[in-house]
Design a protein around this nucleic acid. Structure first.
Lengths: 127, 127
DNA sequence: CTTTGTGCAAAGGCTTTGCATGCTT
DNA sequence: AAGCATGCAAAGCCTTTGCACAAAG
């Protein structure tokens, strides 16, 4: 968690993310900022997003097409329910997965356990 | 779901996947096959994996680094506990995840639900 | 003034595609 | 023989990195 200087660009990225409820990719962030007349390089966007992610400020997931998308987040671990058709994403907060994962890890004597859990389906609007 | 011809290459990819319990990326498949003395192009591997995926023969998920990895779909759905260090993989049989996923899907009126759940950690031999 | 961030362009990694050749049916 | 699959190389995306310049502390 290295300290970061407060630059115009970094501030703009953070402000945009804080104001946006959906997930944004690096190119989305870059496009929205340049459209607003803010000058920023695409690589700076990538670097800023990476550093924010490392500091746990962002929620992240990788879309089906491989693009990584980010959203300002609360630091609690959670999972996603995503619609295959429209891409709408719903956050799920439940401790059940966490407990299950830990129980299984303990049974097999695993340490430093991490887990991923994603649900996809078709939402009622897209049926 | 287009019909596919039975070529040497396609058969080899399928055989490899059926024999491999872990998830494999396209390059993994290509490497393992060429190491076994089987001649196959990387693009053929990609095309074969895509067609198998479309036909619902494969389970898939995208790793943190953006690589897409595939595994032959066993009829019984199950999950894996994998060691980050040695790669050892343990199959987990429990209906708990299934029930949870269905419960969540129902709550949000999602249909045709699928889910992925993977646990990674360090096994006791690798600590 | 020193250190870190930025921009640009080039390169990297995974994946897709165009086209001629070869194999399946 | 006809048509789809393959291989190779080139190109497409998203992302990362090297380097010189600019800005922050």
């Amino acid at each position: 968690m290295t300290f970061q200087r407060n630059t115009k660009q970094r501030t703009q990225v953070i402000d945009l993310l804080k104001d946006t409820p959906e997930f944004l990719g690096a190119s989305d962030v870059h496009l929205k900022l340049t459209e607003s007349g803010i000058d920023i390089g695409l690589s700076t966007v990538y670097r800023t997003l990476s550093s924010l992610l490392e500091n746990g400020e962002l929620d992240v997931f990788i879309k089906d097409d491989g693009e990584t998308v980010y959203r300002w987040c609360s630091k609690e671990h959670h999972h996603h329910l995503q619609c295959r058709v429209c891409g709408k994403t719903i956050e799920i907060q439940t401790d059940d997965f966490e407990e299950l994962a830990l129980k299984i890890a303990k049974k097999y004597h695993f340490q430093e356990v991490e887990h991923t859990f994603e649900i996809t389906g078709t939402c009622k609007e897209c049926l």
